[in-house]
Computed example of a mutant assay.
Amino acid sequence: MSKQDVQETTHFGYEQVPVTDKASKVADVFHSVADKYDIMNDLMSAGVHRLWKRYTIETSGAKKGDTILDLAGGTGDLAAKFARIVGPNGLVTLSDINGSMLENGRQRLTNMGIAGNIEYVQANAECLPFADNKYDLITIAFGLRNVTDKDAALKSMYRVLKPGGKLMILEFSKPVVPGLSTIYDQYSFKLLPLIGKVVANDEDSYRYLAESIRMHPDQETLKGMMDEAGFERTSYHNMTGGVVALHTGYKF
């Protein structure tokens, strides 16, 4: 059998799919959930996702005049806060690979009166269309697990980050509190798809989201991947017993 006959695969949730198909499958999920994304986030996390994001912003070190890239920024939760922090002399780039999510973010921030220091760019995190050494800060919240080639994405982020700049990855991770994994599994695989079915009429997409969390690298593995991509002083902070972790790294 030749190499051409063996098609490389990757995971889409628990399903193995051709590498070339994953991005479009993930896109279908987020096209489907875009209009209910904010409501579902509140229901899925009982509103705790807002605290996770607030902690990310508070520890970001963002300041007036900064250039910030919010990757997989979806409906703009982080971008809206950062736009107010950086002020008129700063710039926030809200980027998402999914056009439906990005448009929802644009409409939401426009309705909030945020304009002038924010731009919207549809882009794949694996091959960012930005100049080298452009951003003071890069954030990606609950998006890295959906990227097909995470190593390529991390290297792309490193390239566009300024020397002295900071990367922050907020993502679901592996619970570290004894007994929490069992409770978390029951919630993720029974209650979460049911919520998706009732609220968003989309049980399958929310089952995928639960599965994608389980397939994401654990805390130490992701830290090692950041090290391999060139980031220094990498660390992570567990929240809610490790259900979520905030990874940080710097480019020097």
Score class of each variant (00 low, 15 high):
residue 5 D to R: 10
residue 6 V to W: 10
residue 7 Q to R: 12
residue 10 T to G: 11
residue 12 F to V: 02
residue 12 F to L: 08
residue 14 Y to I: 11
residue 15 E to W: 04
residue 16 Q to K: 13
residue 18 P to M: 02
residue 19 V to R: 12
residue 19 V to S: 03
residue 23 A to L: 04
residue 23 A to Y: 00
residue 23 A to V: 12
residue 25 K to Y: 02
residue 25 K to P: 02
residue 34 A to V: 05
residue 34 A to I: 01
residue 35 D to T: 14
residue 36 K to G: 04
residue 38 D to F: 06
residue 38 D to Y: 05
residue 39 I to F: 09
residue 39 I to W: 07
residue 42 D to A: 00
residue 43 L to A: 13
residue 45 S to A: 02
residue 49 H to S: 03
residue 49 H to E: 06
residue 50 R to D: 01
residue 52 W to G: 01
residue 54 R to D: 13
residue 55 Y to E: 13
residue 59 T to S: 12
residue 62 A to V: 12
residue 67 T to D: 05
residue 68 I to H: 00
residue 69 L to P: 03
residue 77 D to A: 02
residue 80 A to L: 07
residue 85 I to W: 05
residue 89 N to H: 13
residue 90 G to T: 08
residue 91 L to N: 10
residue 93 T to N: 01
residue 95 S to H: 04
residue 95 S to G: 10
residue 96 D to T: 09
residue 106 R to W: 01
residue 107 Q to N: 15
residue 108 R to V: 00
residue 114 I to L: 10
residue 114 I to Q: 03
residue 115 A to H: 14
residue 115 A to Q: 14
residue 116 G to V: 12
residue 118 I to T: 06
residue 119 E to I: 14
residue 122 Q to G: 10
residue 122 Q to T: 13
residue 122 Q to N: 10
residue 123 A to F: 08
residue 124 N to W: 03
residue 125 A to T: 09
residue 126 E to V: 08
residue 131 A to L: 12
residue 134 K to W: 09
residue 136 D to H: 14
residue 137 L to P: 06
residue 138 I to V: 15
residue 141 A to L: 08
residue 142 F to V: 08
residue 145 R to D: 08
residue 147 V to D: 04
residue 150 K to H: 04
residue 151 D to K: 15
residue 156 S to F: 09
residue 157 M to W: 00
residue 161 L to P: 02
residue 165 G to R: 00
residue 167 L to D: 01
residue 170 L to P: 03
residue 173 S to D: 04
residue 176 V to S: 14
residue 177 V to Q: 05
residue 177 V to T: 14
residue 189 F to Y: 15
residue 190 K to H: 12
residue 190 K to N: 13
residue 191 L to I: 15
residue 192 L to N: 06
residue 193 P to M: 13
residue 194 L to P: 00
residue 195 I to T: 06
residue 197 K to G: 10
residue 198 V to D: 06
residue 201 N to F: 14
residue 202 D to H: 11
residue 209 L to D: 02
residue 212 S to W: 07
residue 214 R to Y: 15
residue 214 R to D: 13
residue 214 R to M: 13
residue 216 H to S: 12
residue 216 H to E: 05
residue 220 E to T: 14
residue 223 K to T: 13
residue 224 G to Q: 13
residue 229 A to S: 11
residue 230 G to L: 11
residue 234 T to F: 05
residue 234 T to A: 04
residue 235 S to K: 11
residue 237 H to L: 12
residue 239 M to G: 05
residue 242 G to D: 11
residue 243 V to R: 07
residue 248 T to C: 12
residue 250 Y to F: 15
residue 251 K to T: 10
